[in-house]
Amino acid sequence: MSKTVRRRLFLLSAAVVAVAFFWACLGLPGFGTARHPYGSRAVDTGVDQRTANVVSSINFDQRAFDTLGEESILFAAVLGAVVLLRRARDERREEPRPGRVLPPTRLLGLVLLPITLLVGVYIVAHGQLSPGGGFQGGVILAVGLHLAYVAADYRVLCRIRPLWLLGTLDAVGAGAFTALGLAGLLTGAAYLENFLPLGTFGRLSSGGLVPLINAAVGLEVGSGVIVLVAQFLDQAVETASPADRPRKPEVS
């Protein structure tokens, strides 16, 4: 298909989509409407379950089974990236060259690394109280660790990032979520039903199962993202692939 034909086809279909979408928008409840039947019920249930952050209550209590699927998608994607980016037979490992880092960058990284990791743990632990939770905190933890790469060196990052351990923790986090659901079955509740004592509203220990699932998700997301980024860094820093060398004319 030539470029002009493709562009015209897009413009035609975009026009159809635009008209249909506009028409559909006119039928939606108005922007900022006060009537949110699902939202109001979810807020009431979240407060009943003594989870101050209602979004966390939905994710890890009211719709926890849905989040289990979401977390499995993340696990499968990490697995897929590891398989896709494994070192092929025609590739060899190159020794990463140490890079030069300016002293202020090094200092900033040194100061920020523990602060970022602490913030990550805080966000995971306070998922039931304030905006945040396992997914957000896990990503902060994973990204914070990579300050070592920016501020120091690839080899330093490799030393503080044992991939075999993080891969195991990823699986443990994913398994812990499933196991927490099964624990409910043992007590006679439904799968992933909040069977623990709910605690006092607004306290760190409130929400019953929510902080535990948050911790499992934080563990899984944190280690999963580190493993994921490690695959890309490995491609960029360590792997010498035949595609990077000048290509020989192909014999056919």
């Binding site: 939202g39 209602v54 509203f201």
Partner: peptide
């Protein structure tokens, strides 16, 4: 929709879509 420093019952946006 976070009630840490908000009296319960105050108007909040829909948490389901969030």
């Amino acid at each position: 929709p976070v009630f840490s420093d908000l009296p319960t019952g105050s108007p909040v946006v829909d948490p389901v879509v969030q």
